[in-house]
Amino acid sequence: MKSVKNLIVGALFSLVSLTTQAETSPNVETGMQLFRTAGGYGCVACHGQFANGAGNVGGNIRGKTLNDINDSLANEPTMQLLASTLSNDDRLNLAAYLEALGQITLVEWTIEETSTNSTVTIDADSPAQLVVFNKLFEPVELSLPQLTSEKTVQLNPYETKAIDWTPSKGVITLNYNQSHLTIDVK
């Protein structure tokens, strides 16, 4: 009887230990939600919807670590406002999300009135993310057959969208009116 009792108590301790580990294990999805909602307005207010800066005051933070987050929360005046709202688990989850984004090659394309012509070089067979910002006062419809199976991608005025893909070697040319982007995939 004593051995059965010890077995049950041991199993309960193991279950509690596994539950505690599961709650404290960093979660990218939870980090993404926090990135969009932390402090009521989310990190997106300063760092853009995809942590790429997006021309905002906070800049690109893709790839930042827990140490980077803690340092900013302790030393940056705007970030200090969020420090008390983020638990240690929240910080771990945010770090998991930002580190995951740091593993994805970022390609940015802004569609605007002025003529733009950009070329970027990226590696083939590595995850990539095209972040498109429609800086026009009109909707934009893009055909991106080399990047997505969707027939078209719609962007409302001043909307940003991301397209995730794994590029193959070659040259991808994206055009919309006067905005041109060439992606050279090596």
Score class of each variant (00 low, 15 high):
W109L: 14
F137M: 08
T114C: 04
D71K: 15
N67D: 15
P157A: 03
T148N: 11
A83E: 06
D184Y: 01
V153K: 13
V4S: 13
D123H: 11
S149M: 14
G63N: 01
P139V: 06
L66F: 08
I122Y: 01
P167G: 03
V140Q: 06
L86D: 01
T105K: 13
T19P: 02
V9K: 07
F35P: 03
D68S: 04
N56R: 11
K2I: 14
D89H: 08
V9Y: 12
Q33Y: 02
L142K: 09
I8D: 00
T119E: 10
H180F: 06
T24P: 00
M79R: 02
A45K: 07
A54F: 00
Y176N: 11
N52E: 15
P139E: 08
N67C: 03
S3D: 15
F133V: 06
A45D: 07
Y176M: 01
A96D: 04
G55P: 04
Q146L: 09
D89W: 10
S72V: 10
T116L: 08
K64E: 09
L15P: 03
L98Y: 11
Y97K: 04
Q154R: 11
L73I: 05
M79T: 02
H180Q: 12
L12D: 02
S14T: 08
W109A: 02
T173C: 00
L174Y: 09
T20V: 15
T20L: 15
N56D: 03
N177H: 13
S118T: 10
L18C: 08
K186P: 15
H180I: 09
A22I: 03
Q154I: 12
G55I: 09
D71S: 15
L181S: 01
A162Q: 06
L12Q: 03
L12T: 08
V171Q: 12
A74F: 05
D71E: 14
V171D: 15
N117S: 11
L34S: 00
W165D: 01
T20K: 03
N88T: 11
P139H: 02
I172K: 07
L106V: 04
V44S: 12
Y158I: 02
A11W: 09
A83Y: 00
V131T: 13
V28H: 05
I172V: 14
L98E: 05
L147S: 07
T78K: 09
A124Y: 01
G48S: 07
A51C: 10
A96Y: 03
